[in-house]
Amino acid sequence: MPLLEQGRLVADAFVAIADDARLPDGAPALVSLARLQAEATALLARNAQLGVLLPNDTDPSALAPFLHRLSLVALRFPKHRDGRAFTQARALREHHGFAGEIRATGHVLPDQHAFLLRCGFSTVEVAESADLAAWQRGLHAIPIAYQPAVAGDATPLGLLRRHVAVG
């Protein structure tokens, strides 16, 4: 499916691998948390990038032992109103210092685009039929923010934010 980074289409290097499927040699693979936990030694020893899909009812600290070897954490929105993944992304950045790709998957709306990035997501997986112009607009529709962003100061500053020391 199309993958957006800062509103631009980018290539998705990762291949999602079913739990019972063989891992491809030397290619970036996206696996489930269950598989990562079951086959950690083998998976972490591979000479290729590794990503994991974290269920949205699981505390990101479950990934702590593996994060140094992970290039991608995919978080899932079962429906757009279910905002748990926003907090998971924050936790990955703030508590675990994860610097790799955090990807939004599932049911997300263009209206949520800017919020996703401010909470630490770096990419969004959108439907094949997605209106990319709408996703672009969603990124820039609101010109201000009143809260500090995980992503730093690339976005314009809000009133309160103007004065708040950057942590």
Binding site: F86, Q147, L159
Partner: peptide
């Protein structure tokens, strides 16, 4: 009020 306005993390509670 400012902090809660369009809060990116807490708009889908």
């Amino acid at each position: 009020r400012q902090w809660s306005t369009l809060h990116p993390e807490f708009s889908y509670l």
